[in-house]
Amino acid sequence: MGKYYLGEFEEVVMLTVGVLYNEAYGVSIKKEIEDRLDRKVSVGALQSALKRLEQKGYLSSKEGESNAKRGGRPKRYFTITASGKRAIEDTRDMRNQLYDAIPKIALDLKIS
């Protein structure tokens, strides 16, 4: 596993932040995940994951603009940091390695 560790939901959040690039803030991330993965995400779960990831140094955030829809509250945009990037790459490599190591026969058997 190395020094990077991402939980499943954390990984989804990281990737989504990446997908959204400069447009990643609370609501957009939530919607993106809900659309793409067809799963319900609560604000609470998302915010605590974001906070955790920021604490780990995988995400950075900056205050953005506000509008009337948001009751005058500012948005908070997230971007992936360098170590965040390494973390998702690392996770992906680990997955691929594991996948490649599966003997063909095991997958075939499962299909039949």
Partner: peptide
């Protein structure tokens, strides 16, 4: 966090 989350909540 309150401000940002509250904003999100409003939007949703």
């Amino acid at each position: 966090l309150a401000d940002y989350i509250e904003g999100d909540l409003y939007e949703i």
